[in-house]
Design a protein around this nucleic acid. Sequence first.
RNA 1: UGCCUAAUGGUGUAAUGGUAGCACUACAGAUUCUGGUUCUGUCUGUCUGGGUUCGAGUCCUGGUUAGGCAACCA
Length: 574
Amino acid sequence: MEEEKNLNFIEQIVENDLREGKNDGRIQTRFPPEPNGYLHIGHVKAICMDFGIAEKYNGVCNLRFDDTNPVKEDTEYVDSIQQDIRWLGFRWGQVYYASDYFDQLYELALRFIREGKAYVDEQTAEQIAEQKGTPTEPGVASPYRDRPVEENLRLFEAMQRGEIEEGRMVLRAKIDMANPNMHFRDPIMYRIITSHPHHRTGRKWNVYPMYDFAHGQSDYFEGVTHSICTLEFVVHRPLYDYFIDQFVGEVPSNFPAWKEGSDYRPHQYEFNRLNITYTVMSKRKMLQLVKEGLVAGWDDPRMPTVCGLRRRGYTAEAIRTFIDKIGYTKVEGMIDLGLLEHTIRESLKQTAPRVCAIFDPVKLVLTNYVGDGEMIEAENIDGMPELGSRIMPFGKELYIERGDFLEEADKNFFRLSPGGREVRLKSAYIIQATGCEKDSEGCITTVYATYDPTSKSGTEGGNRKTKATINWVECGSCVDVEARLYDRLFRVENPSAEEGDFRDLLNADSLKVVTCKAEQSLRNEMHPVQVVDGIAQVKHFQLLKQGYFVIDPDTNENRLVLNRTASLKDNWQK
RNA sequence: UGCCUAAUGGUGUAAUGGUAGCACUACAGAUUCUGGUUCUGUCUGUCUGGGUUCGAGUCCUGGUUAGGCAACCA
């Protein structure tokens, strides 16, 4: 039986359109990133929507780079964006660029001018802003608003020929300077950009269309039916519709299957963007963190970028599950970072092999141990023998966590304490502490214990219950491992809501690098990380009681570097 | 003194005129060779006034609150 799943409001709209036979029963979406930065988890929410709708309703989702501003855009980003989308597990139909339509858009602009719907304004940006009015006061008309068509035509063509200096003139739509929607107050359609070549068209163009004059038209040209975006574009929708109204019904140039007489027209729908506590979701701020070296790069594991999350150890599956859990509405909210962490724990707990590593080691000597070269076999995940096992050398001298021993323990502490409870060494023997040795400053240097040789795990004598199980590694065989312990990037839940500089809100402890002593089996991981399709392959572990970790690409034959993806929940409060 | 959105537990979402449900969090207990996991339970919610209706979270209406809108950005 199919699981009953509630539809989000976009899916309801789509199903309704399908029921009514709109757009010839077609569903077509697009993901329209601007190639001016790396994808972050907020984009993933949009990607899951755009690609998800197409997948679910047998439609197609194309990738379209919204590259109308050469000042900010670069091919570097075009590549990384495609890589990230593929990694997430989505496949687009076609790759398009808004710049594919520059010729058509230019023709359309000329037509607007001829029809008296556009004019060339030669005021400064400041003057134009001034005349725009405010949300509560109407704007006033530009002195150039009623320029003759011929003059507009001549000037706009001069703009494109590069005869006009950047910033000297713009092409404006002639709509309504008193409209309560600010975007209708003669919005700019084209501006001159001669200072930067375009990453695809080079120096061909000296004028470039603004978003509002490019996006809806591009949708139309391609046959997009549902143009889904985030809430900040709601106020742009009337303008989106206005521009399309001017030529709707004409043959869409990049949509060969279009049929004469079709009712086709694209519609824009908006959903709430993703905000997560203790991070920022603004490309501008991320770029600043990267440029100023406040993080190690776009793929710093503390960053909410797709590449950052990947390096942190988040799987594509877990990220998509997370997006699925948070849903789509029109309510602007803030998602608890805890939900993202919960999702990755849920995913990794079933697959990540368990290994021992001691972070704050203290030597444990088993005074009655006489064995030599003993090997212990332990399952990679307890209770799942099909996932294999590994060998752990055992011996008289081990490292255990300093925190697992307390000289004077209260009843809430059920680990090692002299004369205290019996404690199990994970997968090995039951021991009992007898005492400890301290240095001149009172710091414990060695813990002494006796072990019960008949209590080995998996044997009959090992069935005895203990209240605690502690981790250990054998001193002679263990390996030093660099562990990078990541925590939330910011100290406050919502850095964007705070007054002042957001950089002052960074969490100074968001990265701690420590060296821990890990069990011998991790030596097998000391080799360069494999790279497939430009993406470093990840391998996860759970360091028992410490959390989930992933091997970092900085790893080589000489050192193993682990990034903490997420800690384990810790209910032991003191 | 404008226009556009939206208001359901601490958080995120569902209920499409008919029992306010789910997940996360928190707390409590049980289980456990990870103080993890698992299981069970508990707390906490329809912004507000009026109306329509046998019946309203849902429809109508007035208010309140929050967010967005005045880039030659997208």
